[in-house]
Amino acid sequence: MRPAMIWLCLLILATGPVVLAASSPFLAYRGPEYIAGGFAGIIALSLMLIQPLLAAGALPGLSLARARLWHRRLGGALIACTAVHVGGLYLTSPPDTLDALLLAAPTPFSVYGVLAMWGILLTGGLALLRRQIAPRIWRLAHNALALVVVAATVAHAVQITGAMELRSKWTLCLAVLGATGITLFRLRVLTPLRRRGASRG
């Protein structure tokens, strides 16, 4: 695929769901804190499509160093989105949000949202400790956390009836799972196999 096409596809996949959610009729019945909290969640889901592509250096026209820099920046944005998501929901309905955080909510998707939240916060903490941890261990922990966060976020998002338009939500979720799965498969399965093959030579 030509570079321009790749960037266009990414732009449509990542921003399409946000634009469609912005036209949801439900927004008219919600307060600003609920709307902000909801969109922070949708934007976080979109960022999860870009993150593995940046980490893998799969986006054309970006050096690996620049891609990694943006990966760190978007990682920070993910933490900010998570904070706005939970904070906005808390301002909208403290009891519902506390129930979710304490794993006592009646909604089956809440537990996945809380799991993703802790995964994102732990990933942020791990990023701060990068220099103190052996690279091999650090990468394994980061990859494992990324997988948990992505799987939990998708399980959270698809069960929610809300502002997101259904088809664009499922498309984005499958794209996020695909990008994460392929990147992790290359990093943790293909690359080690190739390396072993090369050393046997």
Partner: peptide, 8 residues
């Protein structure tokens, strides 16, 4: 009634 906190 409209969906609230993910469920109507």
């Amino acid at each position: 009634i409209v969906p609230n906190f993910g469920q109507p």
